[in-house]
Design a protein around this nucleic acid. Sequence first.
DNA 1: CCAAAAGTGTTAACCCTACACCCATGT
DNA 2: ACATGGGTGTAGGGTTAACACTTTTGG
Lengths: 230, 230
Amino acid sequence: MAHSVYKYRTGEAYPHCYKYPQVALTADCVTFSFDGKNLYVLLIRRGGEPFKGCWAFPGGFVNPDETAEEGARRELREETSLEAEYFEQIKVFSAPDRDPRQRTVTVPFIVLSSHTNVVASDDAAQAKWFPVDQLPDLAFDHKQIFEEARAALKRSLNFNPVAYYLLPQRFTMPQLQRLHEIILDCKFDRRNFARKMNSLSILEEEERSQGMPRRIASIFSFKKDKLLLP
Amino acid sequence: MAHSVYKYRTGEAYPHCYKYPQVALTADCVTFSFDGKNLYVLLIRRGGEPFKGCWAFPGGFVNPDETAEEGARRELREETSLEAEYFEQIKVFSAPDRDPRQRTVTVPFIVLSSHTNVVASDDAAQAKWFPVDQLPDLAFDHKQIFEEARAALKRSLNFNPVAYYLLPQRFTMPQLQRLHEIILDCKFDRRNFARKMNSLSILEEEERSQGMPRRIASIFSFKKDKLLLP
DNA sequence: CCAAAAGTGTTAACCCTACACCCATGT
DNA sequence: ACATGGGTGTAGGGTTAACACTTTTGG
């Protein structure tokens, strides 16, 4: 499809001319992970202007032939080499002056990933997991985007098997509980929590190996067939 | 702020030229109302191309100095003369070919309004409330947008006092119940529903006037101070 | 040996659901 | 007179929340 309706001037290197006022469209990834103890979010150090050297969420301009989500997946891959399954779009940020360069509207996504190593590339000078309660100053309005994402993740936990994407395939009940407690910012009683999880019948318990002492937590996994993959 | 970073060619009437590929940004309003019996959604008949003569949601291009929500409010006002309080952003639609003219990304909003008369103007040849189960064919991907909005409204009812914006200031319990039933697509027991609503203590019951027969339903209103206005 | 982590059951309060009858009105 | 709409209370089942002790290991 034609995204540029008028031809550019001879010798002009910037061919993006349009009949109606336009905006630049970006997609940003608020990527969470969990190491069994803490919740992390993935940041990159910007290699280019504006906000060069600042920490920010991975993301960038959406290409003419991509949806916002496709753009988000590509940018995350390019900048951090991370491929994730779960992408959930949250509210766009469209304040007219949120980008000093030009009018830019961003579509932010919550991304859920396992806590794997990341490598910076492309525009990113560095990529690093930060504990969610120890974030540095962020570029643009990314602090606000983070707050939105955090709140949306909390709401999402009611409906989506968020833990499935954040935990390793095999995990313990205390790990699952800690994850829920961090996301919801509250405490649960161990017994009540386990009862509730078991009553949902989405978990599978692994056989305890012979003579495994009680001190070691039992292993669980998600029943694949019970998940409504979004 | 500069939304056009490069000057236009002499004699060129379309000054919107940019360094990066751009998209057109629109905002669309999925406006609901309730007349005590049915749930309605507001459509306009398009006065211009593309999809001229088709029914569609009110909406249009977001101006360079507006947020998406400001654009949505303005377009709704211009096309239907409706002013509403409640705007809730839902997921953007960004398929590259969703608009035959050019790359267009739309930010749709759920709008809640009282069931008042509307008058078409501006781009709109006609404006009309349609019962939600009797929608005509819609322009663009507006059918999909409607489905999303309908589902989001259902979810929203759990958290937001949606009924406050859809009902007149004074209403009866059966009206409130019908509204919930239509939105959630289910049936409630009268007694259980009233008990539940009363237990939330967000409703105020008006005094029954002297000798008012029991056949007439009691009047309720929302306690203003209990609403967390979004 | 002590602190920290994990396993295990019971009870009371609360909430949700289901259900039936009466009264007043309009047709 | 009858169909319709609205008002009212109770009992049972399920869910949630609160609660303490034992075992094992690592420091």
